[in-house]
Design a protein around this nucleic acid. Sequence first.
DNA 1: CTGTATCCACGACGATACTG
DNA 2: CAGTATCGTCGTGGATACAG
Lengths: 103, 103
Amino acid sequence: MCAVDYAFQRIGGKHKGRVIYQLRNGIKRYGELRRLVTGITAKMLTQVLRELEDDELITRTVYLEVPPRVEYELTDTGRELLPFIRLLADWGKQQMEKEIIAE
Amino acid sequence: MCAVDYAFQRIGGKHKGRVIYQLRNGIKRYGELRRLVTGITAKMLTQVLRELEDDELITRTVYLEVPPRVEYELTDTGRELLPFIRLLADWGKQQMEKEIIAE
DNA sequence: CTGTATCCACGACGATACTG
DNA sequence: CAGTATCGTCGTGGATACAG
């Protein structure tokens, strides 16, 4: 398989990029992510987080408290993706601005 | 909308990344792309190329010859994505090597 | 608060046949 | 050579209700 393909499988999908992006500055809780990643449903957030965890791009830490607390954080491998996500975000931002000017 | 989201919409999907990647060194013909982007069908290649063209990431040049010749090339905007695709490819490659070692 | 379970719609994608 | 047309499948992702 091709490396580009492989990478897209691991960070592709509708929300994965944004979840990783929101974890760029460190630990976030489930509820925080749900608010930050606008438009995502609980089901999808859970699914994305599980996939990222299986891929060892994030860690999941459960605190046995009441109310329960679960924290997510990028692994080293996950952090390696940040420059790439940032580049993409910058490009996207520029393009969006161009479109606004064009209209 | 978020810039990361926006960017993913423009380069997401199963084959877009690879098509852009194959155009990294300049002009390619339809048939070349079909061979280089393994596993893609004619329909999907056409669709991807049209979308990239609409997005102004590539140009499409038709030569009225027999047999017909159609060439595709990245635009400046499209070329701006190359560092990003390369980064992604490098990361994917490293990860794939890790997996092989792990097994 | 942090999830699961179920059901379902929709669009991406593929296979195949055909065309200028 | 470079596509288009048609039909079908499959998985992603959404809505809603429920649970530890």
